[in-house]
Design a protein around this nucleic acid. Structure first.
Length: 811
RNA sequence: GCGAGAGUGGCGGAACUGGCAGACGCGCGAGACUUAGGAUCUCGUGGGUAACCGUGGGGGUUCGAGUCCCCCCUCUCGCACCA
């Protein structure tokens, strides 16, 4: 019985060694360059890790191991985003406390991660559900509250009767709850809201400071949605008061032919005439009944209703009919618009439906056929005040916009204005399993708890059912609920909302730096050393919300001096989605879910790691292939046999004598390629180069240590267990992870012979081999001989010679 | 509709700033060693008998295009009446 590569024994052996020696601890050593390598920490679900998690985790693990070998002090931590709805719903069903299920799930995740050989510094493990952690989540909330960035508002929220909770917009898909698919209705409720809009400009502008995927930057920009324009005051005919509108196109002000208010706009009451009241009321009620889903239907006909009232255009005194229509949203701008059908597609469609006039004020299109909306083309026309005192005629829109804005301002009729799509952040959930707010209510007023009384812990209970009133299950717990205000001693009632899951994940990267600090969120010196996160890898599903909310909190912490960098995450990469073998999204119902434990049982952790990286580019969506795992397993076995004989001892083929030049070149090319590929996260091509190296060495009868040993080091971030074992068999003491990374000699990465392709009219007709120092004349004459058949003795019209690359005869 | 990204063998994917298309792996074929092989090793493998043709389709620039420019098609992701 020959001893072959036994991944079970080898992986168990080295995992036990790492457990005992803990070589991956990050020490706060300011003398060493640091590298902070972070994964998006998971919600520990009941189903355990899936192969998609593993892709990102393996990538950061390879980078971390590589950076350590390059002499960096690497912070590579892991923790748990463990508050959240699933554990609570499970508790409602079974009565099992969420803390228990959460602990079990964490144990599963951790076991699996260790089994993959991920080199986390487990001494820094954190969970958002730990009172020592959420104490500081609550502390940050208090800072927000003190700075006026957290306020209470009566907001119509997405109330889901089945879940007994309010959902954020992002938790609703197609009008149904994301979890469970239940109906959602609008209901006004008292809510905590965070004033993220106060940071809109900085959140937008500071995107220039980070190295993120272009799509993610774009999504954040669109989400913030800054648009610059003007606010303009329109008088109301026959009465006092004005309608204030926002427009990005003040240059089209002379083209306004009607006004539209959102159905919910407070001025609707004021401008509606007696004759129109009945119709207006009916329309408003119909609009209110429409669900969000219905209002979002796009290509539907635009509807509206005339109010009977008129507004006065401040530039020309024209009377404009005031309509209401649900295509104008109360939540954006001022909830009112001037309608310029000639130059806005929505207004154009509305005007056509209700036969309202369309007046061209930017020449260049055909406004009878469609709205002409391009600002880059066309010139302003028909835009002079009746008295002739002001005109923007003949200007390009870009020039007209500032001119008319200034004029409006000078007349007190308007001003430059900026609007954002971004809304303040609804920061409350009617749930048990979340961070309690450190707030008590005294005589209808919110009072913060003193910081030294934190954490305010979740009360013990066995009843997780919603209170039914819309308040969280905490409202059922009298003993906890009824308290007194610490300072005044007045009777008080605790806030029953809890924080959304985003809260804990907003700042966890800071706590990893100093996880056990009981006096501060993070020690400032440590923070300055470790921040920012150098590499952050996680799914693109967090491209907007988590990453925007984190950035917001980070900037607040920056303003109060807790952190030293304006942005938390310098470089961000999203791993791609791993599809099932059938090229479909993995799902239980399709039965195509790949279980990492089963894969590791069969092929071992190193093979699974390697395959995860070999599948294709990190960021691409790609299907799983168990055959592919077999392929990389064969590669690992070949590596094993390269240096281990059938008795499991060092192979006789491994020799101490110096390697041949060609083999040395191959080694140095491999070092170069693997090094550069890891730096650029191109793991698939790094692995393919190691395969090339292995294939070559397999052919060699004698394998010099000077080749084999550096190769084991190159392999070690990818297949750390195997590399440790081979390092031992080669006669070295552990650990391979503490060896310096091999360096390449640039002179040895190039060959002294070159193959030059010979082309005729750009078509490949032959190849010649020359020395690297061959002169042009020499190359050309060899090439002419090579291509004689094609040249037929004629002199080419032109000879293109690219040094060391190619020669092309044009005939 | 708008924005971002991507289309390369039977499959996953390589190809640096324009310069040998298809590295590496899977699959497939042949052979070797074997009592045996779904192990291992070696060789072959884009299409076509060939001239030639080939990187989603059509134009263009260039001595030369997967790569650059224009038009079109398809797919993925995000946004979705944001004035």
């Amino acid at each position: 019985m020959s001893k072959t590569y036994d991944h079970h024994a080898i992986e168990a052996k080295w995992q036990a060694y790492w457990e005992e020696q803990r070589p991956f601890r990050a020490l706060d050593d300011p003398g060493k360059p640091k590298f902070y390598c972070l994964d998006m920490f998971p919600y520990p679900s009941g189903s355990g890790l899936h192969v998609g998690h593993l892709e990102g985790y393996t990538a950061t693990d390879i980078v971390s191991r590589y950076k350590r070998m390059r002499g960096f002090n690497v912070l590579h931590p892991m923790g748990w985003d463990a508050f959240g709805l699933p554990a609570e719903q499970y508790a409602v069903k079974t009565g099992i406390h969420p803390a228990i299920t959460t602990a079990q799930n964490i144990a599963t995740f951790k076991r699996q991660m260790k089994r993959v050989g991920l080199s986390y510094d487990w001494d820094r493990e954190i969970s958002t559900t730990d009172p020592d952690y959420y104490r500081w989540t609550q502390w940050i909330f208090l800072q927000l509250f003190k700075r006026g960035l957290a306020y209470v508002a009566e907001v119509p929220v997405n109330w889901c009767p089945s879940l007994g909770t309010v959902l954020a917009n992002e938790e609703i898909v197609d009008g149904k709850s994301e979890v469970g698919g239940f109906d959602v209705i609008r209901k006004p409720m008292r809510q905590w809201v965070l004033k993220i809009t106060a940071y809109a400009d900085r959140l937008l502008d500071d995107l220039s400071l980070v190295e993120w995927p272009p799509s993610t930057l774009e999504m954040q920009k669109n989400w913030i949605g800054r648009s610059i324009g003007a606010e303009v005051e329109f008088g109301i005919a026959g009465m006092n008061g004005t309608i204030r509108i926002f427009t990005t196109r003040p240059d089209t002000l002379f083209g306004a032919t009607y006004m539209v208010l959102a159905p919910e706009h407070p001025l609707v009451e004021v401008v509606t005439t007696a004759e129109q009241r009945q119709a207006v009321t009916a329309y408003r009620e119909a609009a209110a009944r429409k669900s969000d889903l219905q209002r979002q239907e796009l290509d539907k006909e635009k509807t509206g209703c005339f109010t009977g009232g008129y507004a006065v255009n401040p530039v020309n005194g024209e009377k404009l009919p005031i309509w209401i229509a649900d295509y104008v949203l109360m939540g954006y701008g001022t909830g009112a618009i001037m309608a310029v059908p000639a130059h806005d597609a929505r207004d154009w469609a509305f005007a056509k439906t209700y036969s309202l006039p369309i007046r061209e004020v930017i020449a260049g299109g055909n406004v009878d056929k469609e709205a002409f909306v391009e600002t880059a083309k066309g010139l302003v026309v028909n835009s002079t005040t009746p008295d002739g005192g002001f005109s923007i005629d003949g200007l390009a829109p870009v020039a007209a916009i500032p001119k008319i804005t200034d004029w409006l301002e000078s007349k007190g009729k308007g001003r430059k204005a900026v609007n954002y799509k971004l809304r303040d952040w609804l920061f409350a959930r009617q749930r048990y399993w979340g961070e309690p707010f450190p707030i008590v209510w005294v005589e209808g007023e919110a009072r913060p708890l003193p910081e030294e009384q934190l954490p305010l812990t979740l009360p013990e209970t066995s009843n997780f059912k919603p209170s039914g009133s819309g308040e969280s299950p905490l409202a059922n717990l009298e003993d906890w609920l009824v308290t007194m205000e610490p300072l005044s001693g007045k009777p008080a009632r605790r806030e029953t909302n809890t924080m959304p899951q985003w809260a804990g994940s907003c700042w966890y990267y800071l706590r990893f730096i100093d996880p056990n600090n009981s006096a501060q969120l993070v020690d400032p010196a440590k923070e300055r050393y470790w921040m920012p996160v150098d590499l952050y890898i996680g799914g693109s599903e967090h491209a907007v919300l988590h990453l925007l909310y984190s950035r917001f909190w980070h900037k607040v912490l920056f303003d109060i001096g807790v952190v030293s960098t304006p942005e938390p995450f310098k470089k961000l990469v999203h791993q791609g989605i791993v599809l099932g073998e059938d090229n479909q999204k993995m799902s239980k119902s399709r039965g195509n879910v790949v279980n990492p434990d089963e894969m590791m049982d069969q092929f071992g952790a190193d093979a699974v790691r390697l395959y995860e990286m070999f599948m294709g580019p990190l960021e691409a969506m790609k299907p799983w292939s168990t055959r592919g795992v077999e392929g990389v397993t064969r590669f690992l076995e070949r590596v094993w046999r390269l240096m281990v004989n059938e008795e499991g001892r060092l192979s006789g083929a491994v020799v101490s004598s110096a390697p041949g030049l060609e083999h040395q070149r191959l080694l140095h090319q491999t070092i170069k390629k693997v090094t550069e590929d890891i730096e650029h996260l191109r793991f698939n091509t790094a692995i393919s180069q190691m395969m090339v190296f292995t294939n070559e060495m397999t052919k060699a009868e004698q394998r010099s240590r000077a080749l084999i040993e550096p190769f084991v080091l190159l392999l070690s971030p990818f297949a750390p267990h195997l590399a440790e074992e081979l390092w031992g068999i080669l006669g070295h003491r552990p650990s391979v992870s503490q060896q310096p990374w091999p360096v390449f000699d640039p002179a040895l990465t190039v060959s002294d012979r070159l193959t030059i392709p010979v082309q005729i009219n750009g078509k490949l007709r032959g190849k010649i081999e020359v020395g690297t120092d061959a002169a042009r004349e020499q190359v050309e004459s060899l090439a002419r001989a090579q291509a004689a058949e094609w040249l037929q003795g004629k002199e080419p019209r032109k000879v293109v010679y690219v040094e060391k690359k190619l020669i092309n005869f044009v005939i």
